[in-house]
Design a protein around this nucleic acid. Structure first.
Length: 640
DNA sequence: CTAGGGTTAG
């Protein structure tokens, strides 16, 4: 039963929300209707609906007036309770209460909010009269549930019925529908209509337009609409930043964020979530720390989404301890938060802890999804926990009713491949209930490369050519397999195929951030002002790691780059970047690098030794995965 | 009617 309402009642009376209540309706006991209305006013919606249900069950029919129905409808809207909608609505119908236009619109909204779109459409059809609110409610509901085309046809009906009555709200909604369809032309038409009707100054229309243009691929138009806004709201800034982030313009997104900060507009948890994600892509620790501080300072520290983004950031950049800290402080966590941390542990080569967390999450009643399983399976895979991996793989559909998808099979192919069980890996791929996908063949091909199985590797590579003939890296892996086993003729053949197809290898580049500044290095790069120091230091590094057993072995494995680079092994972009990092940061500072291609064997080996000799943690993201080098070991288990 | 923007994997 509801707890007493004295405090809220007092507050409401003082604020004028409660007037001469209780006396006027006394048809049922001690003012049940009044109780319900008060509970709704205090946002205690669950209790309001419970009370309604109790009275309904006990008393059979009791008189409820319009205000109480309105309150109950409000409770259903707030709670999105389908059960509530059914009960309240049928009570209303049976009571013969008068559905005026206002009440019809409320009832319509109640159905829309609870995603009962079939009933909502029927209600709308049956309405004896409709106004702008009715149209907006039903059209908005259709857009929210992704029925964009239906939304358009209703909008056109509305337009024909009375085009003068179409307001800015409707326009904003329809612009959102165009964004959902990812069709720019209806969006443009709506834009010009809005201009003609003088609605373009409307904040909501502008924000919807920004979002629509960026989702339809025109960030320039989005920026134009944004620039035209006389007063830029938080959402306007967020929308345009989201646009840049969506298109991979991370630097632009970041600089817009600083402009937003300077403009004095309040930033919210949406802003921070996006920016933290941008920092993840840019591998920028200082900017991420700044955003983390801002998040806390502005009181969004307990936001689930932003905190999850932070967990992801810290774990991707080598700071799994910090990730864990953020996670442990989160007052609420969702599946995504757990997934982020589990895959973090997996990427750090800490599979046992990932499995522990998985079990902990299940014990706490969190329901794992397909991504959870991908995270925990790949954690087992990276750490060589194959028995545990198989157990979990088998339990996922049996105990958790999550059907393994192609990616889960690809992961298990990799798990077998790591152990050198290539035939078993191939059988799993062939016998899986899913048609083998690119990822499954690629996992097999990687296994063949690492374990030097020419025949199967060639077979997998050919499959991949058929599936993605324009993708360079497939050819390069085969090229590597051939050249590393001395099959030079075959290697030359692959190169000829490449030329025939006009596929050019792109130069590899590595970038590193020092003091909030990004530096990019190409192989043999001499454009940096400190070039001499970088190269001299590299010689010194080579000398130091040679004492610990470093031997250049360029003929062993080509990187995914131009063959010219083979002779420039020592000057690979990752080595240059690391050399620069070593001389530009205090000792024991971790280094963070991003590489466009897959790291080559020689660099991988060299970096492992550097991490020991110079006592540096080196976090390296390459084209295929995440490497965390520490004390001479890499989190990938030397398999990538 | 009270709109518009955000997090995990690939």
């Amino acid at each position: 039963m509801p707890r007493p309402l004295e405090k809220e009642e007092k507050d409401l009376k003082e604020s004028g929300h409660l007037a001469e209540r209780d006396s006027e309706k006394s048809n049922l006991g001690p003012g049940i209707c009044g109780q319900i209305e008060k509970l709704v006013l205090c946002k205690r919606y669950n209790e309001a609906l419970e009370l309604f249900e109790i009275v309904e069950c006990e008393g059979g029919d009791f008189d409820v007036n319009v205000d109480t129905y309105d309150a109950l409808v409000g409770a259903c809207i707030a709670l999105r309770s389908i059960r509530g909608v059914k009960r309240v609505f049928s009570h209303m119908v049976n009571s013969g209460v008068d559905f005026d236009l206002y009440m019809m619109n409320r009832v319509l909204l109640m159905h829309v909010r609870c995603r009962m779109m079939i009933d909502a459409r029927q209600l709308f059809e049956d309405m004896p009269e409709r106004n702008l609110v009715s149209w907006n409610t039903i059209i908005g509901g259709l857009v929210d549930s992704g029925d964009y085309l239906d939304a358009f046809s209703l909008f056109l009906m509305m337009w024909e019925e009375d085009s003068d009555d179409v307001g800015s709200r409707t326009f904003a909604t329809m612009v959102r529908a165009s964004a959902g369809l990812e069709l720019i032309s209806p969006g443009q038409q709506l834009h010009s209509c809005a201009l003609k009707m003088g609605l373009s100054g409307d904040v909501f229309v502008s924000c919807a337009l920004i979002d629509m243009y960026s989702k339809c691929g025109s960030i320039e138009d989005a920026k134009f609409v944004f620039d035209m806004m006389p007063e830029k709201t938080t959402v306007a800034w967020n929308s345009v930043i989201a646009g840049y982030a969506l298109h991979g313009y991370s630097e632009e997104a970041l600089s817009m964020y600083y402009e937003m900060q300077d403009s004095g507009v309040k930033m919210d948890h949406f802003t921070y979530s996006m920016i933290i994600r941008v920092c993840t892509r840019l591998a920028s620790l200082p900017h991420a720390k700044q955003a983390h501080a801002g998040l806390i300072r502005n009181g969004f520290g307990s936001d689930v989404v932003a905190s999850t983004a932070l967990v992801d950031f810290y774990s991707k950049w080598g700071r799994i301890g910090d990730a864990r800290n953020v996670f442990d402080r989160m007052p609420q966590k969702n599946v995504i938060s757990w997934n982020a941390l589990i895959s973090g542990y997996g990427n750090h080569g800490r599979g046992a802890e990932a499995v522990d967390l998985f079990q902990q999450m299940v014990r706490q009643g969190m329901v794992p999804n397909h991504i959870t399983f991908l995270a925990v399976l790949s954690a087992c895979c990276y750490s060589g926990l194959s028995d545990r991996g198989w157990e979990i793989f088998e339990s996922m559909s049996r105990d958790y009713k999550v059907k393994p998808r192609a990616m889960h099979y690809a992961c298990m192919v990799e798990l077998l491949g790591r152990e050198g069980l290539l035939d078993e890996a191939f059988s799993l791929l062939r016998d899986s209930p899913i048609k083998p996908t690119i990822n499954m063949w690629a996992a097999l091909l990687t296994a063949c490369r690492v374990h030097k199985n020419l025949e199967l590797g060639k077979y997998a590579a050919e499959k991949l050519y058929g599936m993605e003939p324009e993708k360079l890296s497939n050819y390069v892996v085969l090229l590597n397999i051939y050249s590393s086993s001395g099959k030079l003729q075959e290697a030359a053949e692959v190169l000829r195929t490449l030329r025939r197809k006009g596929l050019r290898m792109l130069p590899a580049c590595t970038w590193i951030e020092i003091k909030k500044q990004q530096y990019v290095f190409f192989t043999g790069d001499k454009s940096h002002p400190q070039t001499k120091e970088i190269y001299d230091n590299l010689e010194e590094v080579k000398l130091q790691i040679s004492k610990h057993g470093y031997l250049p072995h360029g003929n062993n494995l080509l990187p995914d780059v131009d063959e010219r680079e083979e002779s420039m092994l020592l000057h690979h972009s990752e080595k240059l970047a690391i050399s620069f990092g070593l001389i530009s940061t205090p000792s024991s500072t971790p280094l963070q690098l991003v590489q466009s291609h897959r790291i080559c064997n020689d660099c991988h080996n060299a970096i492992k030794l550097i991490s020991t000799v110079y006592q540096r943690e080196i976090v390296f993201r390459d084209g295929s995965r995440f490497h965390h080098f520490k004390d001479g070991h890499c989190s990938c288990g030397d398999y990538w």
